[in-house]
């Protein structure tokens, strides 16, 4: 199915948001996840389904300043 991840349309396999993270080798603790403009609780990543046309944002921490 086609899903927009960080602004780019991608063909993905997998049923949940956690599946997407695993497929991209991203530790869930490294990102905040937004699905269709709604923040997801980290506890819900494994139970939140991804559907055709969804917009997913993986927001990485950016802590530098100096």
């Amino acid at each position: 199915m086609l899903v927009k991840i960080n602004g780019k349309s991608e063909e993905v396999q997998g049923a949940t948001v956690l599946d997407l993270l695993k497929a991209k080798n991203i530790d869930p603790h490294m990102v905040a996840v937004e699905l269709n403009a709604r923040m997801l609780e980290r506890d819900h990543l494994a139970t939140t389904p991804v559907k055709e046309g969804d917009q997913v944002e993986f927001l990485f921490y950016m802590g530098g300043g100096r």
Binding site: D27, H29, M30, A32, E34, M39, R42, L59, F60, Y61, G63, G64, G65, R66
Partner: peptide
Amino acid sequence: RCVFKNPPPPGLVASC
């Protein structure tokens, strides 16, 4: 915190 509830676990995210 609406986006990032808490800091990442120590050592997981690299600093500058």
